[in-house]
Amino acid sequence: MTVILALVIVAINLLAFWAYKKLGVLRSISQIQAEVELEMHSRAHKLLVRRDQLEVGLMKDASEQVDEQWKGDLAEYMETYEQEALMRSKQRLNRL
């Protein structure tokens, strides 16, 4: 009887560890997102500065070409953001 009850309480304890592990996985995902966000923030800032320069007219000479290039860079940035977050989640969460 004592052993059975001990096993039951150990099982409850294991459930606690399992729930904490699940919370840990969720924390890893949050950290990955925060890390990617931080890295991409500086790139977004540079893109915005370029957009401002375009709108003010500092690059009048090749405005259309620069505008196209800017749009291309923005699309690339958004794609990288998605892929980077996905790749890091796969790399790290597989280990858990």
């Binding site: 004592t2 009850l5 001990a6 309480i9 409850i12 304890n13």
Partner: peptide, 10 residues
């Protein structure tokens, strides 16, 4: 809780 139970009764 687990440690105490096992320690006390097992």
């Amino acid at each position: 809780q687990t440690l105490r139970f096992v320690d006390r009764f097992v």
